[in-house]
Structures are given as structure tokens and as C-alpha cells.
Design a protein around this nucleic acid. Sequence first.
DNA 1: TTCCAAAAGTTGTCCCAACAAATGGTCTCA
DNA 2: TGAGACCATTTGTTGGGACAACTTTTGGAA
Lengths: 262, 262
Amino acid sequence: MAQSEPLYRQIAADLREQIRGGQLKAGDRLPTEAELREQYGVSRNTVRLAFAQLQNEGMITSTQGRGTIVREQVITTYHASWAESRDRMSSDQVDAFHAEQAAQGHKSAYRDFEMRIVPASPELAERLTVDEGDSLVSRSFVRQVDGEPSSLQDSYYPMDIAQECGLLTPHDVAGGAIRAMAAKGHVEIGYVDEVTTRMPRPDESRKLGLGIGTPVLVYVRTTYSDTRPLRLTLTIFAGDRNRLVYELGDISGYHGQNGYAS
Amino acid sequence: MAQSEPLYRQIAADLREQIRGGQLKAGDRLPTEAELREQYGVSRNTVRLAFAQLQNEGMITSTQGRGTIVREQVITTYHASWAESRDRMSSDQVDAFHAEQAAQGHKSAYRDFEMRIVPASPELAERLTVDEGDSLVSRSFVRQVDGEPSSLQDSYYPMDIAQECGLLTPHDVAGGAIRAMAAKGHVEIGYVDEVTTRMPRPDESRKLGLGIGTPVLVYVRTTYSDTRPLRLTLTIFAGDRNRLVYELGDISGYHGQNGYAS
DNA sequence: TTCCAAAAGTTGTCCCAACAAATGGTCTCA
DNA sequence: TGAGACCATTTGTTGGGACAACTTTTGGAA
């Protein structure tokens, strides 16, 4: 490995891989601290640091006297809202974001643009109604606000739509992807947003420049035409620097703009 | 203090109080590990455990060679949605929640109901358009799903509305508060939702039974009539067990119901 | 067989020590 | 004056040890 990577992080990475890869499933017991101490030839202190890191990521749980197990994540859905809406104006998300940030006096930019072709995971396949393993076009970038990284955005398109609408380019699409799709008859008529939270993974933490102990907002928007899902956008927001606001109904004034602490 | 409370937690609690109380402000340097070791007469390891806990709460940041400082939290707003909606059906949030959970096959209940009269904080005052320090009626409870605590809900009403609508009772209001207000002419016509995330405070962690490393979703809904804000609802969701979903536009089918991991 | 006590196993707390790495300031020398 | 070397300070990493607290298993006694 990298000779500069601390031991406890290497151990944490190993265990994380085993959990991610399925060798260790939810509810399974991890090796005891003593066993890992033996196995890696390190002190118990170092093993405990590795455990602490995984605990902070919400992946494992230790119980005194019993051992350490892989956590299982069961989540229930709270259907917060449903609304009929029409007449959306600048449908392009990037433009809309830019405009709003500018209105708030912030400078928005994006970098590290990347286009990849990836197989559909079960979650992606379900939401885009394609088969698991089907090729999807991923277009991702890092969004910056006032020079600081603010969120990681990753959009997935079904391959046939991406080809038809010229989304296989390794750079930004002029006018935005939504407009390019609309020009070919794939018109957005609505979307479903899913919002949840978790601790960031190390690479996310690095890209977003997050301090230890900062969670992220995981935000998934599935966009639909009248016949099929057009796109899935996965956005990882730095939890300490972002807030999502939904206005529903016919509100006139009121809404404050500043932070909510307690 | 309690003789059973671990040293590192006592130290963490002391520092947390100093930050909360304002003796240590954002950007200030904390005492060095060596100083705290001296001051409390403990080992450096114990001080580091205390620091680790505060780091996981997102309150402080340590930098090698420089020291440890109190973090400052600046957040920007992302206006994710705007929509005109009408014909909402069961407007009462509690009932709506119950119904949805039942539809998903879960048993929803609530406990520890509490009614208090509290002065308006700056954030509450701004959103409810009252003066800071004005009396508000707080009605809070713990929501349970399948016997597990799922979220902490706390609703704030302007005093005059609460009096008029009989919300000063220390128990549940038959038919729901929204219906009671509507009966007196305070009809809900829309709301603004704000969603963000952070690490839980110790009391929240305890009430929700959260494991270490589990963040919470902070969800603020401000409800409006055609003339004024009626209510502000602050909900703390256990981040590992909840998800918010917003449907916007005219969608027919599609949307999946299961967890989103990556 | 049943129940209770003891033992073994495992994580939690706490101490001590040493060196590495990064930062910020000082001091010297060109 | 300016640049670079050096040093003190501070946190990061890693090792070692001891006992406490809690859970599970085991074994013996009734």
C-alpha cells in the first residue's frame, strides 16, 4: 500500500471492503480486537482507532462484552409531499442553481467534469426501469460555491437517450442536458426527490473538504417524461454548508433566508 | 458529577458547555492537549478521546501543528423546488404520517407528549413573524415506528392562535391541530420545508436511541394561512431510519419504495 | 433437570511513553 | 532586506499495560 497511509486507516479500509464486498454481512460479527491485533501485528489501540472510524461512518456497532457487528440499515419512507405543478421556468438544474446562488450573492462554479459509462446498480436499475447491469451514462462534477467545494453531483442517463441526445461528450452540454433531451422529444414533466443523510465516505470527505464529524445530505432526483424515467441525479451535499428548501402551495412572502441552528 | 461518568465525557461536556455558553466562540483556539492534561490531571489519551467526541459532533477541528479550534457553521440555501398545489386531503400531519406508515406495513405511535410555553428564539421569531422573546406554545412528542423511536417532533404556535384554538392542553387535540385551527378560520394554504443535516446532540441521541456516527435530518416546516404563519414544526429524524420523499409534477407510476444505498 | 455461581471472553476506560509530521516563529547569513 | 535553516509547539500515529464492566458459556450444586 501507500507507505504513508496510517495503519489504522488501512485496517479500516480492509474491513470496509469486506463489508462492501459482502464477505461480512449485516449482523455478522467482526473479528475481535484481540484477533485483529494478532492478525495485523499491531497494538490494540490501533485496532480500536480503526473501529472508531468505521463507527463514525455508521458501518459497525460495538457492544461491551458482546463484540462488534456490522450494522444493518433499515429505512422507512416518509412521504412528505405530493403536489401538482406545471409551468416550470428554467428547467435546467445547473442553470437554476447558478441563478439562485447568484441571487444570494454567491459565486457558483463546477469542476472535475467526468463522463463515464457504468453498469446499472440494483438501485439505479429500479429507479430508471432498466435491467441491472445495463449500461448507463454517468456525467459527474464537483460543484463549488465561493471557491469552496459544496456538492458532488452525478447524473445517470439510459444509454439510448444519451446517444440520441448527444450526452456522450466528455464535457458540458451547451444549454444543459434537460434542454438537449427536450429537443428530441423527451420532455420533463415531473420528478421525485428522495432526501436522506449519512456520514461521508473517505473519498467524499476528501473531495468536499469535510471536517471529521460532518454528515452529508444524500439527495436523489429521478426525472420523468410522460412515458419513462429520463434521468437520475445523485447529489452529495456537504451537510454543514447546504440546506434544501421546498415551497409547496401558494405562499406570498414570509420565508426567511438565514441559518437554522436549533 | 455522576461518579460513573467517564472522565473523557466529563471533559467533553465541560468544553461543550463553554462553546455553547459563548466562552469559546467560533474560531477560538481550545486549550492544547497538554494543557488540558495538566488541568484535569489525566493522560493525553483521555483528552484526545474527549476531543474525538466533540469532533464527531462537528463542534471542533484539530490541525496538526496548529491546534484545535471551534468550528464555525455557515450554510447556504439551495432552493430546490417551487410548486403550486391545492386540494390537499388529510391536512393533518400526524394523521397523514399514521396513514402512510400503515400503508407501508408499519405501526406508528407517539409518546412523551409535552406542552410548554417558551420564548421565541431569533430563528423561531423570524419564521413565525413574531418578536424575539414573545411567548410561543410548544407541543412536542416522540414518534415511534414499530416500537422504535423514529423522530422528535416539536411544533410552535403563536400564543394568540393557540389560545383561540384550544391548543393549550397538555394532551393530544382531537382531530389534529390543523383541523382545530381551520375551524377558527386559520386555513393552511401552503408551507415551506427546510431540510438540513447535522450530528445529534447527546440528548437527541439518547431519545432516538442512535448509535455513534448516526447523523440526524433536521426538518423545519413552516405552515402558512393566507395572511400569516400558523405554525412551525421542527422534526429531528434519526438519519439511519428515515427518508424524505417529494413528488413534484404529474407522475403516474414508477417510483420505487426501497432503500438507496450508494 | 434447573438454577445459580464462577469462569472465560470481549469491549470500555485509563495510564504511560515515544517518535512523526505539520505549523509558526526566530535566527543567521548572504 | 530577504531567504533559508533551525527550533519550539502542537497534533497525529503507534506501541505497551492494567483494570473495569458487561455478556456468554460453563460447571457444579440443589
